[in-house]
């Protein structure tokens, strides 16, 4: 990569655009970014070259149509290093909830002539279709995460895959535990670090927008939630929301609880 500037693309699939804002919300540092890399394709910021060969592609959003599949394969073929950005791209996002519902019904209830809407059977994360070099988790990911990734790649080293549990970050920031002190059903013990432990920091329980951490014990947490008076449906809502297509969050903790009791 020495000499010529590193070529970067930012692509979007089905999403809310929130993860791309990790770039656009950098403030004045955005100008430094423009200087350090060549932004070849980033529709929202201006440059349009979706089909060009690049060093690094960031991909936001989940795949939900046949055209999406073709597009992601082309992006993969054109990219040296492919990074998925956020829950939609790495774990389906909120829209993947439709995977567990009757789709025909859903579309019909929102659109009068559902025939014109062509959807895939399931919303899938990018890694289900093509090889992904790094997954950045979060809904949304933040500027610190994308900067760390970009800077690592520019320095020629492997970006860090942050897999610790949120609780560690929470303790390091010396927040009072909302689960222990207030009995809130905090998802910190199974959630991936990276956000800065924002929710416990303002006295609320984490709702796992950063997805699953490594080596988690969902059923144990599910059982604990049932002692906090959550019913099985409420427990499953805790796990099945923003990262519902993440295999680590798919077993039904509620069913587990029922069996154990």
């Amino acid at each position: 990569m020495a000499g010529a500037k590193t070529r970067v693309a930012v692509h979007k699939f089905s999403s809310c655009d929130g993860c791309q804002l990790a770039f656009l919300n950098m403030g004045e540092a955005l100008l430094t970014l423009f200087e350090q890399v060549e932004l070849v394709h980033f529709a929202e910021a201006g440059p349009l070259n979706p089909g060009t060969v690049v060093d690094i592609s960031f991909v936001e959003g989940s795949l939900s149509t046949a055209a999406d599949l073709q597009r992601i394969r082309a992006i993969r073929a054109n990219s040296d290093f492919l990074v998925t950005l956020g829950a939609c791209a790495t774990a389906g996002g909120l829209q993947a909830l439709r995977n567990i519902a009757d789709k025909g019904d859903w579309v019909a209830s929102v659109y009068a002539t559902p025939e014109t809407i062509s959807l895939l059977e399931n919303v899938t994360p990018i890694s289900a279709q093509v090889k992904v070099d790094l997954e950045i988790h979060g809904c949304p990911v933040n500027s610190r995460q994308v900067t760390a990734t970009l800077r690592s790649l520019l320095a020629g080293i492997t970006p860090l895959d942050e897999r610790d549990k949120l609780c560690l970050e929470c303790k390091r920031r010396q927040h009072v535990c909302v689960m222990v002190t207030q009995g809130m059903p905090c998802m910190g013990p199974v959630t991936r670090t990276g956000c800065g432990a924002l929710c416990p920091g303002i006295g609320r329980d984490c709702y796992a927008c950063y997805g699953a951490a490594e080596n988690i014990n969902m059923s144990s947490l599910g059982r604990h939630f049932s002692t906090l008076q959550l019913n099985p449906a409420q427990i499953s809502h805790r796990f099945v929301s923003f990262n519902s297509a993440d295999p680590a969050f798919t077993p039904e903790p509620a069913a587990d609880t029922a069996r154990d009791d």
Partner: peptide, 23 residues
Amino acid sequence: PPRLFEKLLEGREYHEVPDMVAR
């Protein structure tokens, strides 16, 4: 592609709504 939010809110608890619709 449509993300069908209105539908996926059905059955959710009221306190989940603000975080879901934000997306």
